[in-house]
Design a binder for these strands. Structure first.
Length: 880
RNA sequence: GCGGGCGUAGCUCAGCGGUAGAGCACGGCGUUUACACCGCCGGUGUCGGAGGUUCGAAACCUUCCGCCCGCACCA
């Protein structure tokens, strides 16, 4: 027999192991099954499970289990990402104070692999705890040979087509990690700073100067011009003349350029083409000298006067300011709040830095990726994210794909001694090309840099399926069905997969992109370690069970908004699992077993027809919601059905039949209860796999195998039974009304009352007879009498539809209180009646509203009027 | 500056043209052969403000107010 409560910890691991061992996580090989595929956004290989993963993977697993039950051949492709910068940074910290340069590349990379071996893959184990039914046998890692081969092939082909090229441009340089970053890895952060107004003496005009303003005074050492607006009267006369750069002595031409904004600063702006993105463009327009003053680590190089060489950029700033001050060249200093770019990784300020890097021609690649969303080959859910995607894609910049790291895919480019580059799949091929080019062999040196991690992630939907091999999986599962991810990843990943998928597969990587929000804490704050408000999903799983966590996530996942996560909700859904468990326990205790050949459409008992009708509706709702990625609607539909309909009413109402003498009714009810519970377990399985599987196997001995492999319920629409619903709805209303009245009047809960019924229609009298037992038990009614005359002075009176129900209480009842209760009800009815009357008296309403609406309002008015009159009568009786 | 989102019960949020809802919290009561991780009962809302469209607006439009998030922007 089932225990009183469900203990998730005892069964979760077992089911997970059995499911996987039995091969249910692998796609069904049957070629007639339609394919369904999701590639899991690869988490960082050395990371651990956080709420973001829990959300993302719960949604995916729910879809995967749903589609699997629907009969698709399902592949959920898992994998992990090498997370270049993050992982390398972790290991660099581990070996400190030794630097990676001291260790050497080979030894350092070996250290990272060690770290990966040690901490890598932990997240896969943690995903198992969540119930993630991915095909773990196909687990991939971005640095696996197969995936790496795909990366090389893509690089080579794009290079040969001119879509990858090397260029000397300004990049976002992280001085601490000493690598270039893409625009996306830079955070623009508002900080308090200063605006220094500097005087640059004018050449040949002793005592005169031009004032420029800057927030980064140290960069003046790299200035090569001053720009003014061509129409700025203040400076017009100076155009074409020169100033002298203080501390350095360089001549700076004063040029006219529209970039200069007369409103900003002094209106004249210093131009440092090698250290500012805008200045770079100005420099290009005026053929200005590019003076790089920084070393890779942010210290000043030999391009600056000796006094500043070797100083760190912040020390250099102080020194420059002090020297300018001493020379009387600082006009004024204004405090300013401005935006400074910071590296997401090292959290240090980014320096625009001139260097040779590899770029992908994102603009060209983006064209097709934009079109694919425009014409609906790929669809975002919710739709509004398409605008974000378009906005970014249409303004896309060249994508800097090289990183000065050692952990990642080394760029397949080799240099000859004269600097000529040979891009090839491997060294032998490069060598052959070089030999062909020079007519003899030359020593080649490989480019030391690696590729941006997102470059390999961008290939994920096809590289994991075996590309460039033409594998059966690739043929079967590409394009994948849906990508599920957070909106913060649209640019990083979705965009890149779209570009590269279309380019190399000629087809979009996924049909749908399901975008969900970020997890926040109860107060709406982003979860972060520094705020100390992180919730650990594993901790929640341990305390409440994976099902409870999953249901909480699903019920909170509303399209288009963030998820505020409160622990009390997890507790609530843990309670739901227990409730379900106990419903199953009740069924067990009452001999509700599945009956082979049970035909739900042939049930005769109204209660059974009612619950089947509700079940069919809940199933339809759930299915529609899951198909549309409305996870919260699916969760709520099932929660409501299971708790408020199945448990609260059906099981209560089924009790007499289950314990009764009528063998046929009992058998039908037992079979129905078992059937409904079994169907409910099926419907819930994608959401809460563990408790449903456990109950399925414990209770039904798993006919036909485990629930994970069962078929999704197909319930006939003919099960929807309006007459049964009307009857039971009436019963529920009556019981609730009787309970409410008793409670309000403080009738002792145990007191059994007589129910006198007045004005009941024949149909109602029938119903009363049919549900006599239920009324007795649920509303504590001793017996029902059909009464005609008004005889109830000390009686409670309740109006439901056309009938009035009186419960004589003799002297127990407080007449005054009862009068007040009835008056409140009457007032409410009167107010409602007035609203309807007003509406129905409005000629315009009658003229313009649809007939159905008018009819509906009339019908409702009639109902309210009836209630109103009955309540008046009840009051009159009590007063007499 | 450009774009997007959100303001509904004490809290977290559904609802998005035709009777204002759920969960949690709160209060009262616990009788009913599954469940106290439970049952029953209960209250509260100028649906952010103001206009407009409509027979009818929480919902659609305009505008304002208040929060939030992207993107752009180191003079």
């Amino acid at each position: 027999m089932l225990d009183k409560t469900f203990e998730p910890a005892e069964v979760e691991a077992t089911h997970d192991r059995r499911w996987e061992a039995a091969g249910y996580f692998k796609p069904d090989p049957d070629p007639t099954r339609p394919p369904y595929c999701i590639v899991m956004p690869p988490p960082n290989v050395t990371g651990s499970l956080h709420m973001g993963h829990a959300v993302d993977d719960t949604l995916q697993d729910t879809l995967i289990r749903f589609k699997r039950m629907q009969g698709h051949a399902v592949l959920w492709q898992p994998g992990m990402d090498h997370a270049g910068i993050a992982t390398q940074a972790v290991v660099e910290r581990q070996i400190a104070p030794t630097t990676r340069q001291e260790l050497g590349r080979e030894a350092f990379v070996a250290r990272i692999w060690e770290w990966k071996a040690q901490s890598g893959g932990m997240i896969s184990q943690q995903l198992h705890r969540l119930g993630a039914s991915a095909d773990w046998s196909r687990d991939r890692f971005t640095l696996d040979e197969g995936v790496s081969q795909a990366v090389r092939k893509v690089f080579v082909q794009l290079y040969r087509e001119g879509l990858i090229y090397k260029d000397k441009r300004l990049v976002n340089w992280d001085c601490q990690l000493q690598t270039a970053l893409s625009d996306l890895e830079v955070d623009q952060t508002e900080v308090d700073g200063h605006l220094w107004y500097l005087r640059y003496p004018l050449e040949d005009q002793p005592g005169r100067h031009i004032v420029v303003a800057t927030t980064r005074p140290e960069t003046m050492l790299g200035d090569s011009a001053i720009a003014v607006h061509p129409e700025d009267e203040r400076y017009r006369a100076l155009i074409g003349r020169h100033a002298v750069l203080p501390l350095v002595g360089r001549r700076l031409p004063i040029v006219a350029d529209l970039y200069s904004d007369p409103e900003k600063g002094s209106g004249a702006v210093k131009i440092t083409p090698a250290h500012d993105f805008n200045d770079f463009e100005v420099g290009r327009r005026h053929q200005l000298e590019l003076i790089n003053i920084l070393e890779l680590d942010g210290r000043l190089n030999e391009q600056v006067p000796a006094a500043y060489r070797g100083l760190d950029r912040s020390a250099a700033r102080q020194r420059v300011l002090a020297d300018l001050e001493a020379a009387g060249l600082i006009e004024k200093i204004e405090p300013i709040r401005h935006v400074v770019p910071f590296s997401q990784r090292s959290e240090t300020p980014i320096e625009p830095f001139l260097s040779d890097q590899w770029y992908a021609d994102a603009k060209t690649l983006a064209a097709e990726a934009i079109r694919a969303v425009e014409d609906g080959r790929t669809r975002f859910v919710p739709r509004q994210w398409e605008n974000v995607y378009f906005e970014w894609m249409r303004n896309i910049q060249p994508w800097c794909i090289s990183r000065q790291l050692w952990w990642g895919h080394q760029i397949p480019a080799w240099y000859a001694p004269d600097g000529k580059v040979f891009v090839a799949l491997d060294e032998a091929e490069a060598q052959a090309e070089a030999t062909r080019h020079y007519g003899h062999a030359v020593p080649l040196e490989r480019d030391p840099d690696v590729l941006d991690t997102w470059f390999s992630s961008g290939l994920w939907p096809f590289s994991t399926l075996g590309w460039p091999e033409e594998t059966p999986e690739l043929a079967r599962f590409y394009p994948t069905s849906v990508l599920v991810t957070g909106f913060d990843i649209i640019f990083f990943w979705v965009a890149r997969m779209m570009m590269l998928g279309l380019k190399f597969m000629g087809e979009v990587p996924f049909r749908d992109v399901c975008i969900h929000g970020l997890v926040r804490d109860e107060r709406g704050q982003k979860m972060s370690k520094s705020k100390g408000n992180v919730v650990d999903p594993l901790d929640l799983i341990e305390r409440y069970g994976a099902d409870a966590l999953r249901l909480t996530i699903l019920a909170s996942t509303v399209q288009g908004s963030d998820i505020r996560f409160g622990e009390s909700r997890v507790e609530g859904y843990r309670n739901f699992a227990t409730k379900l468990w106990n419903a199953a326990r009740f069924c067990e205790l009452n001999g509700c077993e599945l009956v082979a050949g049970f035909a739900p459409g042939e049930c005769r008992e109204v209660v059974n027809r009612w619950v089947l009708s509700k079940l069919a509706q809940a199933a339809a709702e759930t299915e529609a919601a899951l198909e549309a990625y409305r996870f919260n609607d699916a969760a709520m539909a099932l929660y409501r059905f299971a708790w408020n309909e199945f448990c609260d009413w059906y099981l209560e109402l089924a009790k007499p039949a289950l314990a009764g003498e009528d063998g046929a009714a009992r058998a039908e009810t037992q079979a129905t209860a078992a059937f409904v519970l079994a169907q409910l377990l099926h419907l819930l399985h994608p959401l809460t796999p563990f408790v449903t599987e456990e109950l399925w196997q414990r209770r039904y001995d798993a006919p036909g195998g485990p629930l994970i492999a069962a078929s999704w319920p197909k319930l006939e629409r003919t099960l929807i039974a309006p007459a049964a619903e009307a009857e039971l709805d009436w019963l529920i209303r009556l019981v609730s009304a009787l309970r409410g009245a008793r409670n309000e009047l403080g009738v002792p809960p145990g007191a059994k009352l007589v129910l006198q019924v007045q004005d009941a229609a024949a149909a109602t009298q029938d119903r009363l007879t049919r549900h006599q037992e239920a009324l007795g038990r649920l509303a504590r009614i001793e017996r029902i009498e059909l009464a005609s005359g008004a005889q109830a002075k000390g009686a409670l009176q309740v109006v439901v539809d056309e009938a009035t129900y009186l419960m004589p209480l003799a002297d127990v009842i407080d007449l005054d209180q009862e009068r007040q209760r009835l008056e409140r009800a009457l007032a409410k009815a009167a107010a409602e009646l007035e609203r309807f009357d007003k509406k129905l008296a409005n000629p315009q309403f009658l003229d313009r509203a649809p007939v159905e609406v008018i009819e509906e309002q009339r019908a409702r008015r009639a109902e309210v009027l009836q209630a109103h009159d009955k309540l008046s009568a009840a009051l009159a009786r009590i007063a007499s």
